[in-house]
Design a protein around this nucleic acid. Structure first.
Lengths: 338, 338
DNA sequence: TCGTATTAATGAAACGATTCAAACAATCCA
DNA sequence: TGGATTGTTTGAATCGTTTCATTAATACGA
């Protein structure tokens, strides 16, 4: 017996001696109920410990007051921060917020989209993984819009909020060159991730402009262990060919490199400078604080949620837009050669 | 117009030429429907792109197929990992999982409990913050049970899953003593958090047993910056009174200490050894890897969710239990004086 | 005083699934 | 052949809200 004592709207109505419609109005449009009755109703609600049944509300009104968000990896603090920003906005709109983790697995991605559809969420924030754009278009045609996060919408059919990864990559590399790196390298992968590809090409543009060769160390993913591994590889190179400055595609990789270098006795930044990307908290919290390219993480989440609400609220007038933030170079010790 | 094209159960029934009851059975008890009709129904579902309406299901059946989880701080990787474990279990039970962040703010805590109640979640996993036990008891009496996470249930009225913080604190301090620390210190706070208090008293027991004095540096919270600050304070002490071994109440504090010491030129572990607590990923990923007390993070989440499901499924026979995991000392460079 | 706005309150009809008692069909046995 | 048994299928009732067309009450101006 699931529903033990739950008082319902009708019980409240009886106790307060008004109709159910009035109780509903007290809840939803309190200003158009007379003070007298409103107080009676509120008292009754209090006395009975009445709690609205959200399922019934959603059923009747056709959609639930909730947003779904699907990220690539909740264990990456970058995404938790983006989610935090989005949640704030959802909160402000009195929507609940369902955070799901595709964990870079496209089966999970699909099944969470199923879930969101069943829940009739009002909209979806997603960092897409698999080939999911088509499905999102179908879902929108059925009334569930979505906004792409940390990913530029290539067709104009979606709003998106992202960061100019190419510019970020260029800034990172220009910085390395400016502190005197003559044998720079890029560490990252896979190149099927647009972000990685863009960051690399930004870096490449910088080295080409300076007439310097850019070494490439490709990784199968962006995790710490991979960074450590490449660090060991780099350490084994002959000192005169070994990179003297490394730009890693994200901070987790960069931290892996840093640990490997430290353990192997390479001095950072004297022997080799490091620049990461994302500027997660742990970048600045490392014992050798990491130079990084900062993305406005919370802001990305906030803007994305706002765009989504705009589409939800003004289905017709809404115009899709691509918000692209400029990332910011934050210089710390890992690249400071004074 | 929210509900554009949504086909409903009835539409499926018409197309498949069966009754709505049969369609519902195909969805819920497919084995008791004849193959013939089942196939017709499935084909119709496919053709119409029918998606179940979860609100309607929940309304009719009295509770939603979902679990709520309320953590102290989603930005702390410890909690994301616990949540990940719990989510897996929820998934396996085909329940959806709502993760909420009280952010150490008891107003938010209350309002998320409101939300969970409105959503009629089937149960709640919570790391309680404010004075919330009473409310949880009321909620249980109304059919929404909860399990305490990372917190021992002091009354026997709840299940709980936690770690023996006292033992962990003792192990941490015994380790520091064993590597030769003669002026050990504890860094952490506030002591209103049971976890902190227990870890401290564990450490104290170890020093008392060894006849050594334990210095205490109290902090208002467990964040990185506080660790950094205390690190600076410690650095300013006269070398002959300065601690030569520090046990921090969690890893974030420990990382803050580590950064401060490194910057100030104190050598870790030679001048001062550090031990943290939680063993988050970043502990091992630090450039000087951190010795820490490992909690089985995912497992904590899993066990908690399992206990919750047991209470949900066997309301009557269920017996509350307190699961207490033993933490594990993981020795790394930050405390290795060879 | 009467008609007309204006404002408040009502309550029956949805929303879209699940449930369950009853009807129906098929099979078996005496 | 009829009755009992087993297995499918049916469809009306139901969950707890919101919605909205009506009705009731009140105030206002002529």
């Amino acid at each position: 017996m699931p529903n033990n004592l739950g008082a319902k709207l009708k019980d409240v109505a009886v106790l307060a001696q008004v109709s159910v419609g009035t109780v509903s109005n007290v809840l939803n449009k309190p200003e158009q109920v007379s003070t007298d009755k409103r107080n009676r109703v509120l008292a009754a609600i209090d006395q009975l410990g009445f709690v609205r049944n959200e399922s019934a509300r959603s059923l009747r009104s056709g959609s639930s007051r909730s947003l779904g968000m699907l990220v690539l990896d909740v264990r990456n603090p970058f995404f938790t921060d983006v989610a935090l920003g989005a949640e704030d906005v959802a909160d402000a709109h009195k929507h609940s917020f369902i955070l799901a983790n595709s964990a870079e697995n496209s089966v999970r991605e699909q099944s969470y989209l199923d879930l969101f559809e069943q829940q009739r969420v009002q909209g979806i924030l997603i960092t897409p993984l698999g080939d999911v754009i088509e499905r999102l278009e179908v879902m929108r045609s059925r009334g569930i819009p979505s906004v792409l996060v940390d990913r530029l919408a290539s067709t104009g059919h979606f709003c998106s909020v992202s960061v100019d990864d190419t510019a970020g990559g260029r800034a990172a590399m220009e910085h390395l060159l400016s502190v005197g790196s003559t044998r720079p390298a890029f560490v990252g992968g896979p190149f099927t991730l647009q972000q990685v590809d863009d960051r690399y090409h930004g870096a490449l543009a910088a080295t080409e402009a300076a007439g310097v060769r850019l070494q490439l160390f490709e990784t199968p993913n962006l995790k710490f262990e991979r960074g450590r591994h490449i660090g060991d590889v780099i350490n084994d190179l002959r000192p005169d060919t070994r990179p003297d400055g490394v730009f890693a595609a994200n901070d987790q990789l960069a931290l892996g490199l840093l640990q490997s270098f430290t353990e192997n006795g390479l001095r950072v930044p004297e022997d080799i400078a490091i620049v990461g990307f994302d500027d997660i908290d742990f970048a600045s919290q490392s014992s050798i604080p990491l130079t990084s390219i900062r993305q406005p993480r919370q802001l990305i989440g906030e803007r994305a949620a706002e765009l989504l609400f705009d589409e939800i609220d003004n289905e017709l007038e809404h115009e899709h837009q691509q918000v692209v933030f400029m990332p910011e170079l934050v210089v710390r010790r890992s690249s400071q050669r004074s």
